[in-house]
Design a binder for these strands. Sequence first.
DNA 1: TATTGTTAGTTACAAAATCAACTAATAGGC
DNA 2: GCCTATTAGTTGATTTTGTAACTAACAATA
Lengths: 149, 149
Amino acid sequence: MTNPGEESDSFDLASFLPFLLNQAAEEASLAFQNVYKGRYGMLRTEWRVLSHLGMYGRMTAKDIGDRARVHKTKISRAVRRLEERRFLTRSPDEADRRSEILQLTPAGEAAYRDLSGVARDYDAQLAARFSPEDQALLRRMLRQLADRG
Amino acid sequence: MTNPGEESDSFDLASFLPFLLNQAAEEASLAFQNVYKGRYGMLRTEWRVLSHLGMYGRMTAKDIGDRARVHKTKISRAVRRLEERRFLTRSPDEADRRSEILQLTPAGEAAYRDLSGVARDYDAQLAARFSPEDQALLRRMLRQLADRG
DNA sequence: TATTGTTAGTTACAAAATCAACTAATAGGC
DNA sequence: GCCTATTAGTTGATTTTGTAACTAACAATA
């Protein structure tokens, strides 16, 4: 019979990277989530769409999905809600009539400016626990983990 | 009017920690998720419950929820499914009759041994991209981010 | 020992994510 | 041009999660 804590030769749940990453991600997302939820009633995917459009300018739903690695059905529904709330508009893509070009309205841009400001401060506050070198290293390692496994 | 990519003084979405952490967590969880899902039809919370019982031995639902930071309704449902599949049993807690002591069955322990072995290898593989010092630093930083904000 | 407050866990209902099927447009042969 | 395969995006059905309300047990105290 298995004796807990004994047979687990060298597997330590508390250090398991997927577990740690999830804990950290959830904790780090929480406070900022309350901001976009509280101020604009947005869900995470809506904030992602908004921030991509704000950051990179006009793009199609596919572009956003590829960049943010979000499934197209989630994008589709987030876009509809943002459109209903007048944060973005769609216009036909002349080059490919299956797609639509998405673009923030002035209201959408105002929300983006507001939220990205909060995000910048929040990020600085999160990172402030670590030395500048460690911060840079952390981001580099996370980026590498995010890139295909 | 906002000119994308220009007004965003110093906010870089691609370096935003909550975003990066989420991407890394999702990517890092994916392959292992396929294992417990494929082999045992488990959901993430079920794997978490199983791994906590396997790692730390008999505990109550509350104990698991506290350690894993998972809401009690999720734990409750995960426990029920694990019980239905005969991976764990409940027995009354003599000291507090509101609680039940959860414990893996031999089948549950076998699944835990199997999965924790895979997890150990998988973790090593994930971490292998970094030097031992960087690995240790990464885990330390993640643990700190996970600990209350 | 009543009374009030708290806690462990479950359940019901609402919100959201996932998956499959679908439409409309494009792309690549042939 | 015509046929088939692929792609962008939407919709509906199913599954999973989240929120609130609930039961039963415990704890503190007057």
